[in-house]
């Protein structure tokens, strides 16, 4: 069975996107969301070998901070469990930034260069060598490529008529994306999340559109939003194939 999904972008940047998908079941929408969070692997610093750490933080505290730094991950070049060596050497007085980290692979670099790791005073020094490993969000949250991934129903707004002359106009707060009667898609931030600003003096009814979901996807910089969604859909396909083979007679 192959079904075509109708995908429409509402907002799209490299790290942040909002898109509408039609023809999904709620279970499948959630499957994609979960795959984005738990199944798409990213590189993250895992084992750290300290050469010198005379800063005010313990080795373990610095290692934890290092693990959370996003690294750009060219997924085509790596397999699960592959490692990349990274290193840093900063002497105080200075702040060690994520941008000071050098990596052994040209395609792999720190996605955000301005993250302060530790502030060093004069005489303090931080030098280490570390292995970044490719693993999945399932195993550790630091490997999650998607940040705050979620979805909402698309909501259809219909005008039922005019508001009575003496009726109080109360604000109608709404979040997400609405579909107007002409089929136009409007993000609620455009009308300050208040429907009465878009339709002043109207009697409105809001209903969920069945099978239409508006995803909001943000990545930590490991890869683009497209890559994250594509890979997530791919892992669902792979697991379905696996199940098919496992139960084949």
């Amino acid at each position: 069975m192959t079904t075509e999904f109708d995908v429409e972008f509402i907002e799209r940047t490299d790290r942040n996107a909002r898109f509408l998908v039609r023809g999904l079941t709620p279970a499948f929408a959630n499957g994609i969301r979960r795959a984005m969070v738990a199944d798409v692997p990213t590189l993250s610093i895992d084992t750290v070998r300290f050469v010198e750490n005379s800063s005010v933080m313990f080795d373990e505290m610095i290692a934890l901070r290092l693990g959370l730094i996003p690294l750009t991950t060219p997924l085509d070049d790596f397999e699960l469990g592959d490692t990349v060596t990274v290193a840093l050497d900063v002497e105080g007085p200075a702040t060690a930034y994520s941008g000071d980290i050098v990596t052994s692979e040209p395609g792999v670099e720190v996605a955000d260069k301005n993250i302060p790791i530790i502030k060093l005073n004069s005489g303090q020094r931080l030098e280490f060598e570390a292995d970044a490993v490719l693993d999945r969000g399932k195993d550790h949250a630091k490997h999650q490529g998607g940040v705050a991934v979620g979805y909402r129903h698309l909501q259809k707004v219909e005008v039922d008529g005019d508001l009575g002359e003496f009726d109080d106009e109360e604000p109608q707060i709404l979040r997400g994306v609405i579909e107007t009667e002409d089929g136009e898609l409007i993000a609620s931030s455009e009308f300050d999340h208040d429907l009465t600003k878009l339709y002043p003096g109207k009697e409105l009814s809001v209903t969920d559109v069945p099978g239409a979901f508006v995803f909001h996807v943000e990545t930590d910089g490991s890869f683009s939003v497209e890559e994250l969604v594509d890979r997530a859909a791919e892992t669902i396909g792979d697991r379905a194939d696996e199940l098919k083979n496992a139960v084949a007679v």
Binding site: M57, L68, I69, D112, N114, I115, A141, V147, A148
Partner: peptide, 19 residues
């Protein structure tokens, strides 16, 4: 001590903008 690298709740890298 130092600002946490990421947001505790959603995981967005916030320390990037702290300074």
């Amino acid at each position: 001590m130092m600002i946490p690298v990421r947001c505790f709740t959603c995981g967005k890298v916030v320390s990037e903008h702290y300074e």
